[in-house]
Design a protein around this nucleic acid. Structure first.
Ligand SMILES: [Mn+2]
Ligand SMILES: [Mn+2]
Ligand SMILES: [Mn+2]
Ligand SMILES: [Mn+2]
Lengths: 219, 219
DNA sequence: ATCTAAGTTTAGACGCATCTAAATTTCCTG
DNA sequence: CAGGAAATTTAGATGCGTCTAAACTTAGAT
């Protein structure tokens, strides 16, 4: 029994669901990986037997230390690759995710190191996600989404990298990690959030506001 | 039924056995891919059903046009990647083969194009193997090995890329594709071939001479 | 507290890719 | 050209990763 690409994807996905604060239930994993819940249950049993997670039937799973280690390794590959593809190969930021999804399983430790060295041991990928270090402590800070943040000046910390269309739109209005924007008004009942990006004002729906993570900024 | 990584490896391997002029028999494929002959037979049947090769029981196989197309696509990926890894990432030439063996299945057409563009549409990989063009005619020239070549001045055209130790040794004595050397003497009965590389003379055994391909050079 | 809907697991199946052991075919050698 | 060795195929099995349909458990609503 070995750590296949599929096993890596399960562990990575479980890690990122848990990190978002949600309980890690069968259907959530199934949705993310686009497989049936039955497939997830069967894989969970294997991962549990391999010692990568603990499993309480009907209740969900939790990664063990060794499961977390593998998850972080794959996530490091993924985010280093996204940055490399964007930076060194000029792949547009809305396309790096899908490429990295495959390549993350294909690079050796040597290649990982070469890429990290060329990039100068970077700390964040093009979408603002932190890159786990090769070794040592790692802690992901949780930011609020635009949907939940209070009005006022904020810095864009991170954008969800899974929807290319959203990324293209965000790029078009000049909104990237690092950009400072102002939340001017939040209409009630799921209405748009009004933000000022540079000199322009935009009304952003939940489709967008749940995918942009920000932090308050003092002015 | 889809073109898996394994299917790609079989087609690539069959192509390269056929190109070397040998008949493509079950055991040869099995040896190359390090699987059992029984596995090869079973895969051959599938590839035949998929229309990628023609198969005469007990006699061997021959790629169809569509099989050849896939083989060349994978070989293009492999050789572009070897060159890219060596050139742009500084991976030593004795290690690029194993990396490329995995990555060849993981890059998209977009990424292939980006790599080719950055390298300036190269025609040969670091071991002297020609890179099949994206489209259009492609013909691999067959060169003699040092073992079979006549004494006299020759140019190194290609070295086998599969044995890292051999590659390291060849690099150490300064022998790469493009190097001009002189075959001074060939001892009979599988004895060493004496070659002059630069100012040094080397006695090369069959372990080496079967892995270096040369062409006669006029002086 | 009971019922029911949602979530989860089990049962049984399938295709891929591989193996070993046994049967078959080819082909070389004496 | 007969017999045996080598090559090849067949038979039967296994693990992975997935599915659908059916059974079961949990938890929320009345
Ligand atoms: Mn993946
Ligand atoms: Mn990312
Ligand atoms: Mn391969
Ligand atoms: Mn090569």
């Amino acid at each position: 029994m070995q750590v296949t690409d599929t096993v890596q994807d399960y562990l990575k996905t479980i890690y990122s669901i848990a990190r978002a604060g949600d309980g890690v239930h069968t259907t959530v994993i199934a949705d993310r990986l686009k497989v049936s819940p039955a497939s997830v249950t069967s894989m969970i049993k294997r991962l549990s037997a391999l010692g990568y997670l603990t499993y309480t039937r009907y209740q969900g799973v939790e990664l063990t230390d060794s499961g977390t280690e593998i998850a972080l390794e794959v996530i490091r590959h993924h985010r280093l690759l996204e940055l490399y593809l964007h930076h060194s190969l000029g792949i547009p930021w809305d396309r790096v995710h899908d490429e990295a999804e495959v390549l993350e399983h294909a690079i050796s430790e040597d290649l990982e190191d070469a890429i990290a060295r060329i990039l100068g041991d970077p700390t964040h990928d093009p979408h603002g996600d932190p890159i786990p270090p090769k070794s040592g402590v790692y802690l992901e800070v949780l930011h609020d989404t635009l949907e939940k943040a209070e009005p006022g000046p904020v810095r864009v910390e991170r954008v969800s990298d899974r929807d290319p269309e959203v990324l293209r739109h965000l790029a078009k209005i000049g909104l990237q990690p690092g950009t400072e924007i102002v939340i001017e008004r939040k209409d009630p009942y799921g209405g748009p959030v009004w933000v000022k990006v540079g000199k322009r004002r935009h009304a952003m729906g939940t489709e967008l506001t749940t995918k942009v993570y920000v932090s308050k900024v003092e002015r």
